[in-house]
Each structure stands twice: as structure tokens, then as C-alpha cells.
């Protein structure tokens, strides 16, 4: 699904990357508040849902080639974090949904965890 559809499903606000919503296709996602847990799964994570808003969330996404971050529970990062993401062309969304229902709604709409698996080098 596109990030535009994700935005609709989660009734989310767009913090940056508005122009990318309909051209960015997401095939899989993960939800986590521990960045190393995100970093442990290397494959095709197009999107990250998290309750954290510090700059390292954006850096983690960049290392993983994640195109979109969704902040749950209505969290909004500092403007500096939005700028960091915008510079890297990473889309930031914010939703009032809590983590579990946010993931559940996306999963039900067809967004799975994809082909992610533990990387063996």
C-alpha cells in the first residue's frame, strides 16, 4: 500500500514528505521502541511505527533504508528532528492511535511483516 493509504487508515497527520505520500509504496512494517530490535531485522522494512521521537529514530530509519516513520500515541518530535528526516526524504506521520491498534489496523489492511528475517551475513 502507499504511505497515503497508511495515512488514511491511521487518520495520521503528515509532518514532512507530503509530496512523497502517493509515490512511496510500503510492503512491510515493524513496530518497536527499542532501536536495536529494529536494527536486528535487516530486510525490506519499509516503515517503522514507534513511540519514540528522538533523532536516533530517524538515524535508525536511515541506516535501514526505511522510508516512513509513524509516531504513535499522538507523539510529535522536535522541529529539528522533522528537519533531519526531511533532509533525508524520510516521511514522518503522527497518529493518535496506540501502538497495538495502529499495527492491527495496518495488518488487517494487508500490510504484513514482510520477508524480514534475522540477517545472516
Amino acid at each position: 500500500m502507499t504511505v497515503g493509504e497508511v495515512r488514511n487508515i491511521l487518520n495520521a497527520g503528515v509532518l514532512c514528505g507530503q509530496d512523497l505520500l502517493d509515490v512511496t509504496e510500503i510492503k512491510s512494517a515493524c513496530g518497536a521502541d527499542m532501536m536495536s530490535d529494529v536494527l536486528a531485522f535487516v530486510k525490506d522494512q519499509g516503515m517503522l511505527l514507534t513511540g519514540l521521537t528522538n533523532p536516533q529514530v530517524v538515524r535508525t530509519a536511515e541506516m535501514m533504508d526505511i522510508n516512513c516513520i509513524v509516531f504513535v500515541r499522538g507523539k510529535t518530535p522536535d522541529p529539528s528532528v522533522v528537519r533531519l528526516a526531511d533532509d533525508k526524504r524520510i516521511i514522518l506521520l503522527t497518529t493518535e492511535e496506540r501502538m497495538y491498534p495502529a499495527c492491527g489496523k495496518l495488518y488487517r489492511a494487508g500490510l504484513s511483516e514482510g520477508s524480514s528475517g534475522k540477517a545472516t551475513a
Binding site: M34, S36, A40, N54, Q56, K118, A119
Partner: peptide, 18 residues
């Protein structure tokens, strides 16, 4: 940990990926 680190997965990840 509140910043999202300290899961004790850093060195294992480094071993896996290198």
C-alpha cells in the same frame, strides 16, 4: 533505554552483519 537503546543487541547485531 528510554532513548531506545540498551536492548543488548548491539554487539550481536555487529557480529551478524560483519
Amino acid at each position: 533505554r528510554e532513548l531506545g537503546f540498551g536492548a543488548g543487541m548491539g554487539l550481536p547485531n555487529m557480529k551478524n552483519y560483519s
